[in-house]
């Protein structure tokens, strides 16, 4: 069993919500008329290697007929009867503009192997199976990969500047317990990286981890700073603070362990998931602390090479 982190799933998740049924469905739909006999249907399913087809009059959908219906008809020796007598009339269909997640939800809800896709007038414009969804996602992932390969925007700014070593350093002060004005550093880091043209997925991971680190400084310390150091190949975010420090780092890293007071919890924080979340987002994480002095958290995010989740 491969352990899946949320960063592994994010790209596929976002695709599922972004992609439209129209982009993954099969457009050339094989259909039958209601007058078609079950024997003829058998030949169509066999030669086309499919397990079900929409039943149409003109191009209007009136039902679906599958191998299941066919088997039942043949068992009863009704091979010469028509599709109209055996088809499912209450058809669950999708619209081309619906998202792939709607299709996935339908597959989870019903036992059908395929769903017809119809336009506003009820005309069949496509058909979708789980195989179509997988193929569509793989195609999109491949395109993303190519886009990433050709994406040199982020490194442009660094290539334009000549030096033996170039880095962009962003430094933000973080005040303790200021939940009204605090929390700005991560948003500003996010916008800076957007302007540099880094990949949105990576920006998101950096923003989430930086925000969690910033909130930790606001909750637990006497103040500190967030420094983001952007280089062509990676971003290093360091969160340092002065304060009580962490007596037991291993314990602090446990999901759900928290020392936050109630008023922090009332603000929606302090559930003990911050460091876990940071660990899931960052490619590398180092946490050091001295009791009574302060804490230092380093988070590394690679912009090129193996992304988080690929091993």
């Amino acid at each position: 069993m491969v352990e899946r982190t949320h960063t592994d799933l994010t790209i596929v998740h976002e695709l599922i919500y972004e992609l439209k049924v129209d982009q993954v469905m099969t457009h050339n739909v094989i259909t039958v008329s209601p007058e078609c006999t079950m024997q003829e249907l058998k030949e169509i399913l066999r030669t086309r290697r499919i397990s079900g087809v929409p039943v149409v009059v003109g191009s209007k959908l009136i039902g679906m007929v599958s191998v299941d219906n066919l088997f039942r008809a043949l068992e009863r020796g009704e091979g010469s009867s028509t599709v109209a007598q055996h088809m499912t009339r209450q058809v669950v269909s999708l619209r081309p503009e619906e998202t792939v997640i709607s299709a996935i939800n339908l597959f989870a809800r019903y036992s059908y192997g395929r769903f017809p896709v119809v336009d506003g007038e009820g005309n069949v414009v496509g058909i979708i199976t789980k195989g179509d969804i997988v193929r569509g996602l793989l195609k999109q992932l491949e395109q993303l990969w190519h886009a990433k390969e050709s994406r040199r925007q982020y490194t442009h700014i660094f290539e334009d500047i000549e030096s033996d070593e170039t880095a962009l350093i962003l430094r933000y002060k973080v005040k303790p317990r200021d939940f009204v004005h605090g929390g700005q550093a991560s948003g500003k880091v996010k916008r800076a990286l957007e302007r540099l043209g880094a990949h949105p997925q990576i920006i998101r991971r950096i923003a989430v981890a930086t925000y969690e680190a910033e909130v930790n400084i606001m909750i637990h310390s006497e103040g500190g700073e967030i420094v983001a150091e952007a280089r062509p190949e990676r971003v290093l975010v360091t969160a340092t603070d002065t304060g009580p420090g962490i007596p037991d780092i291993e314990k602090a890293m446990q999901p759900g362990f928290s020392t936050a007071p109630d008023w922090i919890r009332e603000l929606g924080f302090g559930a003990g998931m911050g460091l876990t979340n940071i660990k899931n987002c960052a490619d590398e994480m180092r946490l050091t602390s001295e009791v009574g002095v302060g804490t230092r958290l380093e988070m590394v995010f690679y912009l090129t090479g193996a992304p988080k989740g690929a091993s």
């Binding site: 949320h6 924080f269 559930a271 998931m273």
Partner: peptide, 20 residues
């Protein structure tokens, strides 16, 4: 919006939501 999330825990929002 494409989807929704109900949460009073900000870490959950950061972990489980997507753009949109």
């Amino acid at each position: 919006v494409a989807m929704a999330c109900g949460a009073d825990l900000m870490s959950d929002v950061l972990t489980f939501t997507h753009a949109g």
